[in-house]
Amino acid sequence: MPVNTQAGEPRRPPFDAEAARRLREALGMTPAHVAYGIGAAFGIRIPPATVVSWEDGLGTPTEAELTALAGALWCAPGELLGAPDTLRAYRMTRGLAPADLALRIGMDQAAYERLEAGGRWSGNDRQTAALAEVLDLPLPALIRFTGRDGKLTELLTSAATTRWQAYVRPVGKVVPLPKHRLQDVLQELHADYQATMTATLNWGGSGSADESGRAGRAFLDGILAEFWARAGTEQP
């Protein structure tokens, strides 16, 4: 199903200001040296004060500026990025231009760029597998970027609230994990949800049913993150 791959994605990359300062100082360069290098090699004219503002966390370079900064600091762009959380950030961490990534996953460049600008993923299975491989995506990120996180949440909710055994196969179609691991995780989620509901009902008092409902909703609200944690795959 086509989905939005980047709702609310920031226009600028997740810049690591401390890394930029550390790399510059390790090279014995001043902000003026960096600004000169960016202008000389990449034709991007910025004052030294801009480099200082980036390092102080008061500003963030654009993608073009980040690439130029990495060149001036003799490092890969990924070394200047924080933890990636969007499709664009993962691409930049790998040091790939949109055209390069589009070519490697077999997608039209304009179509790929629309994805990063807030478009909808409608790639086929081959393109999905290529995207995961080229960007080295963690499984939770792949599921999110290809729009399957909503479906997975629905299945996990049903597994926790009804018969978990009936959802091993459907969840397995969404998440390519070993069957035995899925069985263990779904059984644990079901047991914990039921225990949560039972415990709150046993508190006693007229408000116990309301308390149970709130506790149950809170559990289900976090069920996707809990699934990834129990499956041994970190949530990005």
Rank of each mutant, 00 (worst) to 15 (best):
V174F: 04
A117D: 12
S158N: 10
D184E: 14
A195M: 10
K179G: 00
Y193L: 02
A191K: 06
Y193F: 12
A159V: 01
L177E: 01
E188D: 14
R144T: 04
E113R: 15
G106L: 04
Q127K: 07
S206L: 14
A129S: 14
D108M: 06
N202T: 07
S158V: 05
P178I: 07
V185E: 06
V185F: 11
S208F: 05
Y193Q: 12
A110Y: 02
H180L: 15
R148Y: 05
Q109T: 15
Q183R: 15
R114S: 03
T128H: 10
Y193T: 02
R104V: 01
T162A: 11
R120Q: 09
G106C: 05
T153P: 09
W164G: 03
G205V: 05
M107A: 14
L139V: 05
L152I: 08
R126K: 15
L115S: 08
Y193K: 01
G207C: 02
E188P: 11
V134M: 06
E211T: 09
R148H: 14
G118S: 07
T128W: 13
A132W: 00
G118W: 00
P140T: 12
A130R: 00
T146I: 10
L156F: 06
L142Y: 09
V175I: 09
N202S: 13
G106Q: 06
V174P: 02
T146R: 04
T196M: 12
T157P: 05
A160L: 09
H180D: 13
T162N: 10
G150T: 14
L156Q: 00
L115F: 03
Y167R: 01
A166V: 08
G172T: 12
Q165R: 07
S158I: 07
V134F: 10
L186W: 04
L156A: 02
E154L: 09
L156G: 07
S158A: 13
G207L: 12
D210P: 03
G205A: 05
A102S: 14
L137V: 07
A102R: 13
Y112I: 00
G204N: 08
I105F: 06
L142W: 02
W203R: 14
A111K: 12
H190N: 11
G172K: 09
A195V: 03
A195Y: 05
T196N: 06
K179I: 07
E154T: 14
L155D: 05
L155S: 11
R120I: 09
P170Q: 03
A117N: 04
G172S: 05
P176T: 04
L186S: 00
R181T: 03
R104K: 15
R169Q: 11
T200Q: 12
R144H: 04
A199P: 01
H190D: 03
L139K: 11
P170T: 04
R144L: 08
S122F: 01
E154S: 14
D108I: 10
A141L: 02
P178W: 03
F145N: 01
G123P: 02
A141E: 08
A160W: 15
L201D: 12
A110R: 09
M197N: 11
G204Y: 00
L115E: 11
D136Q: 13
Q183H: 14
